[in-house]
């Protein structure tokens, strides 16, 4: 067994175990951290198939930004396990039905017929000067430019919708506008020095 194969089985095992932990942990923060572990080890698997750019970007975008915000939200949640378990038996049949339907769908699309070494011949090794990043950039901005732009617009729509849904004016809060604050000038806005005449001697009774 070559070193690469050994690495593959190590990280594949870590990915599977971590993914299992995500759905079985009681504590939601632990579950999110296992999800992070699953992401990192699948990034290593991507590195092993010479998709360096995608592997590093997976860590950068999902682990470094998305999961941080996700973790942040989960930490703030007050999860009441008793309330979550209420009605477990009542909803079990329909839940089981949905789960079974999904399992069948997944099986039909990515069943064992689609896998195996004969279905995927080993790709030819890339030449030494081959740069993953350049190849991806070229494909994205020439061949697939149109779908790329459409995806960008869809994301923009999602951003606008999310902002519109959460933005509300609250005139009753004493909100300070920091951009107005930093524009304060020393002269007229902040301090006014007033020259006062001395009062002279005060008579003590």
């Amino acid at each position: 067994m070559g070193f690469e194969k050994f690495l593959f089985y190590c990280f594949a095992a870590i990915t599977v175990v971590a993914a299992g932990m995500v759905v079985t942990r009681r504590n939601p923060v632990h579950a999110v951290l296992y999800l992070v572990l699953a992401f990192v080890s699948s990034a290593v698997l991507w590195l092993l198939i010479e998709a360096e750019f995608l592997g590093i970007v997976l860590v950068l975008v999902y682990v470094g930004a998305v999961m941080v915000l996700f973790l942040f939200v989960v930490m703030m949640l007050d999860v009441d396990l008793a309330a979550l378990r209420a009605g477990f038996v009542r909803f079990l049949p329909i839940g089981g039905l949905v789960a079974a339907a999904m399992a069948v769908q997944i099986f039909l699309v990515v069943g064992p017929a689609n896998f195996g070494l004969e279905a995927f011949p080993k790709p030819p090794a890339a030449p030494a000067e081959y740069s993953n990043t350049e190849a991806l950039g070229l494909a994205l901005y020439t061949e697939h430019l149109y779908p790329f732009e459409i995806a960008a617009v869809i994301l923009l729509v999602a951003i606008v919708a999310a902002i519109r849904l959460t933005l509300r004016r609250r005139p009753d809060t004493k909100y300070i506008d920091p951009s107005a604050q930093v524009q304060v000038k020393k002269g007229p806005d902040r301090v006014r020095l007033v020259k006062m005449p001395a009062e002279g001697k005060v008579e003590t009774p």
Partner: peptide, 25 residues
């Protein structure tokens, strides 16, 4: 000497925040 060196640095420095968040929680 990897080709995506700058990206690697950016990815790793973005992981440092986990130590802080996990410590805080």
């Amino acid at each position: 000497d990897i080709n995506a060196g700058l990206l690697y640095i950016l990815a790793l420095t973005s992981l440092g925040v986990y130590g802080i968040i996990i410590a805080g929680w």
